[in-house]
């Protein structure tokens, strides 16, 4: 039982750390209505950049800042490919994602794995201050602080004039252009912020797991979508924007708990996770349509 409890605790702290990524994906997927696949590349970019900089002796917090900037730059590349060169958003994201793989390998000096075994991390700082805390607890605390800051930022930003214009761009592009907004700029800003947070998330995950891997971003977009749709299905899309953002965080945590429980069954291995995640996303995204069909059927029966 206690091992089960530990697994759940670990899942919760992982979920919180990854929720920063999910919040980033939320900006593009829900607010801009773009499925941005660059996040698979920028999550690893954030992780690898952070790890390499820490190994070189940089302060782990500063390393996170640089990783975030790197992610923002990659997001800008996707944005420019899409808005200025007219490449469909999904393809622009794929191009950035693929390029990031090569760039990440370069940053890591050709090594696919960059360990942080003895290096300082944000978590080890906190552990030095409070030695009584477990590894999981420190990750959870760091994650909660970071997530709270990101949620607060997003709540503020999307309430501003610029943030409102960005939301309107995803909502009705022609309308907001007629109201004098350069929608290309708005999409670029959205992609930059989104990928910045995704890279930041990659950076803290790398510090928490004490290594970065060039392959650590594979499936990021699907995990991000899973978090968003689980949050929406469980908590609904109601109340204000802060509630919606928190539901994304809760979705990310629930996703990790689901995975932890699934892995308790000996039948599944970690290799099955991506398939399971894809099934969760496909199921959650199709819930509204299935619901409609069921409602129509029952309405039809009543009619007869």
């Amino acid at each position: 039982m206690s091992s089960f409890f530990l697994a759940i605790m670990g899942a919760v702290s992982q979920g919180v750390l990854w929720s920063v990524m999910a919040l980033g994906v939320y900006i593009t997927f829900r607010l801009l209505d773009i499925a941005d696949l660059s996040v698979d590349g920028t999550f690893a970019l954030g992780g690898v950049t952070t790890a390499v900089l820490i190994v070189k002796g940089m302060n782990p917090i500063l390393a996170l800042v640089i990783a975030t900037l790197a992610g923002m730059l990659a997001g800008l590349v996707t944005g420019l490919l899409h808005t200025k060169l007219g490449i469909p958003a999904i393809l622009a994201g794929i191009l950035t994602m693929i390029s990031c793989y090569s760039i990440n390998l370069r940053i890591a000096g050709g090594a696919s794995n960059t360990p942080l075994l003895k290096a300082d991390t944000v978590m080890s700082f906190l552990n030095d201050l409070f030695p009584a805390l477990s590894k999981t607890a420190t990750s959870l605390i760091i994650g909660l602080i970071l997530t709270a800051a990101v949620v607060a930022f997003l709540y503020w930003f999307f309430g501003t004039e610029m943030g409102s214009a960005l939301r309107a761009t995803g909502n009705n592009e022609r309308m907001i252009r007629a109201l004098g907004v350069n929608t290309d700029t708005m999409k670029n800003i959205g992609l930059v912020i989104s990928n910045g947070f995704v890279a930041l998330s990659g950076g803290v995950v790398a510090q928490s797991q004490k290594y970065a891997d060039v392959g650590m971003g594979t499936g990021t977009i699907v995990i991000g979508l899973a978090s968003i749709v689980i949050g929406e299905v469980i908590f609904g899309n109601r109340f204000n924007f802060a509630y919606v953002l928190c539901s994304v965080v809760m979705g990310s945590v629930l996703y990790r708990i689901i995975i932890a429980i699934v892995l308790r069954f000996n039948f599944f291995t970690t290799g099955d996770l991506k398939l399971l995640t894809a099934i969760i996303v496909a199921f959650a995204l199709s819930v509204p349509i299935i619901k409609n069909k069921v409602l129509q059927k029952s309405a039809g029966r009543k009619g007869r």
Binding site: E161, M162, G163, S164, A165, A168
Partner: peptide, 14 residues
């Protein structure tokens, strides 16, 4: 959004 038509949109409250 319409009230700000044609004006620069900054970081003050929407």
């Amino acid at each position: 959004l319409a009230y700000r038509r044609g004006k620069p949109r900054g970081l003050s409250w929407g």
